[in-house]
């Protein structure tokens, strides 16, 4: 557990958080390499299914980083994303996974420092929570494939 390094998936809006990540780079700010960025044209493009698939695929934490309230390039994509994050949290709660593994974060394109700080804080929080229980089950299925059908092995290996 002590050497646990979480895998974090960050869906970053092209117009704010992704640019903020660039800004963090330009400012030579360090943030944990655990954060895997997926650039999206707007945080409103992120659907609940993407968040759930990330958790199912073994991500320990997922966050959606969109524009500040009222600043969405497409008017209301960030508000929609925030509502989907709430829905995904409820789903996670229903299936017995900590809802805090999914979060919505808002920032502007100029907030390079905030991007780096957020990545640091979120990674620390997930590190404290421990691995996604789904990931452990996947690993077990790969190590001990008895009674696991070929289709299961395949899905566990993905």
């Amino acid at each position: 557990m002590e050497d646990f390094e979480p895998v974090i998936v960050a869906f970053c809006c092209h117009y704010c958080a992704y640019t903020a990540a660039d800004m963090a780079g330009s400012l030579r700010l360090c943030y944990p390499p655990n954060v895997k960025i997926i650039r999206v044209p707007c945080s409103g493009k992120v659907d609940t299914i993407h968040l759930m698939q990330a958790i199912k695929g073994g991500a320990d934490g997922v966050y959606v980083a969109g524009c500040l309230e009222g600043d969405c390039h497409f008017k209301s994509g960030n508000a929609k994303a925030a509502r989907r994050v709430v829905y995904a949290k409820r789903l996670l709660n229903d299936v017995g996974i900590e809802p805090e593994r999914i979060e919505m974060i808002m920032m502007s394109a100029g907030m390079g420092e905030r991007f780096a700080a957020t990545a640091e804080e979120f990674t620390a929080k997930i590190r404290g929570m421990g691995p996604n229980p789904v990931k452990l089950m996947r690993a077990t299925a790969i190590r001990d494939p008895h009674n696991v059908s070929p289709a299961h092995k395949e899905s566990a290996a993905v």
């Binding site: 759930m52 698939q53 017995g96 789904v134």
Partner: peptide, 20 residues
């Protein structure tokens, strides 16, 4: 369908089962 499938698989994996 995709959402429920993910949620169920996560839930079953959490309880130590793999359901295809």
């Amino acid at each position: 369908v995709a959402l429920l499938s993910s949620a169920l698989q996560v839930a079953f994996m959490k309880s130590g089962r793999i359901v295809h």
